[in-house]
Design a binder for these strands. Structure first.
Lengths: 171, 171
DNA sequence: ACGAAAATCTTTACTTGGAAACAATTTAAA
DNA sequence: TTTAAATTGTTTCCAAGTAAAGATTTTCGT
C-alpha cells in the first residue's frame, strides 16, 4: 500500500497561503485510521461520560476500579494493584491515602513481609461499591456512544487483545 | 455516616469467587468488560509504544497530530484545531508556542478577524512531517499489539463510532 | 553471619494539564 | 452611534501525574 500517492501539501510555494484556507470543518485524513489517535479521543469521551454520570458524588475515574479490584481480591498488594491497573506506584500511594482518609479502604502491613502493604475494603467501602456498581458497569454511563450491545462486546474484545489485559482467562 | 454498626471479623464475605488472600495474579472480573477501563489501559499501552518508537527524537504524542492536521488544513484556526483533536485551548496554546519556538509552525493573525490565529507549517515543519509520516502512521509503532490488519481496521471503525470522530459539526 | 543487592512502598521535586479569570476584538442591540 | 454581549485566544494559578531519590525490609552471595 503506497501512501505517498495521497501526500499533496496544500500550500507549497513560500509566501503563498492563499490556497484553500481551511475554514469550516477540519479534515483528518490518515489520522482517522490511527489507533493511537482514536484511543486518545475515545478515552477523552469516556472521561466526559464518566464525569457526567458521577457528577453528584465525589468519585474519580480510577477510584472505583481500585475499590472494585480490592473487593474482589482482598489483601492485594499495593504494587500488584498498581501494575494491574496501569497506575504508577507514586500515584497509587496518593489514591490509597485518599481512600483511607475517606474510610473506604484499610492498609495492613503483614508480619511476614513488612515492606509490603495489603489492602482491604472497609464496611463503608463495600457498601459504596455495592451502591454504585450498577451505575459503573451498567449501561447508564455508556449509553451515549451509539454502539449496539454486540458492538460493545466486540470492541471490548479487541481492546483486551490490544492491551493484553486478562491474558489468563481471555480467549 | 456508618450504616453498618455490626462489627464482623476480617473476612466479611469478600465475594463469591474471590480468594480470601489475593496473592498471585489479580482478577478483574466485570472490569474486563468495562469500555472505560479498557480504553484507559489501551491508551497507556499506546503511549508506551509511541515513546518506544519515537525515543530518539524529541516528539510528544499530540505534536505530530497537530502538525499533521495543520499540514492538511493550512490556516486552520487555533480553537477549531483544539476542538477537533480534543485538546483544551490552554494546553493548545502551550503546544503551539513550543512548535513555534522549534520553527515548525507559523502563527498568522488575519486582518479580517484579529482575535483569531491561523496556523501554517514552516518548510522545516513540512519536512519533519514528511520524514516521520511513515513511522507514525505505519505499522512500525503498532506492530506489538498482536492484532491482524483486519482486526485493526475493525477496531478503528468501532473507536470512530464510539468517539464520534469525523462527524460533521453543524452549528 | 555479614554486607551487598533487590524488593516494596513513600517522599520530594518537577512537569504537565485544566478551570477560571483576563484581554482583545467583533457582533448585536438599544 | 454607543453600549452590551459574544467570540477567540492567552495567562494565571492550582491540581494531577511522574521520575528520581529515599527509607525499610528482605533476600542472596560469599
Amino acid at each position: 500500500m503506497n501512501k505517498g500517492d495521497t501526500f499533496r501539501p496544500e500550500e507549497d510555494r513560500p509566501g503563498a497561503e492563499a490556497a484553500p484556507e481551511s475554514d469550516g470543518a477540519v479534515s483528518l485524513y490518515e489520522l482517522e485510521e490511527s489507533l493511537g489517535f482514536l484511543l486518545r479521543i475515545s478515552q477523552v469521551r469516556a472521561y466526559e461520560r464518566f464525569y457526567a454520570a458521577f457528577d453528584e458524588i465525589e468519585l474519580r475515574p480510577g477510584e472505583f476500579s481500585v475499590m472494585w479490584v480490592i473487593l474482589r481480591n482482598p489483601g492485594v498488594r499495593h504494587g500488584l494493584l498498581a501494575e494491574t491497573l496501569g497506575i504508577k506506584p507514586a500515584q497509587m500511594t496518593k489514591m490509597i491515602r485518599r481512600l483511607e482518609v475517606q474510610d473506604r479502604i484499610r492498609r495492613v502491613i503483614p508480619d511476614d513481609d513488612r515492606r509490603s502493604v495489603r489492602l482491604y475494603l472497609t464496611a463503608g467501602g463495600k457498601a459504596f461499591v455495592r451502591e454504585h456498581r450498577d451505575a459503573f458497569f451498567g449501561h447508564d454511563d455508556y449509553h451515549n456512544h451509539g454502539l449496539s450491545e454486540a458492538e460493545c462486546r466486540q470492541l471490548a474484545h479487541l481492546l483486551r487483545r490490544y492491551s493484553g489485559v486478562g491474558r489468563r482467562t481471555d480467549n
